[in-house]
Amino acid sequence: MKNQQVLSLAIGSLLALGLVGNAVAADTKMEKCYGVAKAGANDCGSKKAGHACAGHATMNNDKNDFVALPKGTCDKLAGGSTTEASDMPKKGM
């Protein structure tokens, strides 16, 4: 281990933080989500086909015969809809 001093400084600062009571200011740049409850997915499973489950996709209109294009917030991204996927760099890591 060639970085003993780095480790000592780092753990030392954690320890110091602990001694003052873990009082760290919240990171203000962070966005939060799921602060409100996710709907209970198993409610629908519990009981049959809430309207959304049973109400659509009947025998007659269930054929996969329409060609829909993505039409949502992707339109608000600059360059959000590109056909040059193959030119994109590979994912890191």
């Binding site: 519990s46 009981k47 049959k48 086909a49 809430g50 309207h51 049973a54």
Partner: peptide, 16 residues
């Protein structure tokens, strides 16, 4: 106790 809906003559236990 709950409510149901009807589809094609079939009572569906939809709780809605």
């Amino acid at each position: 106790l709950a409510g149901f809906s009807v589809r094609d003559g079939c009572l569906v236990d939809t709780h809605d």
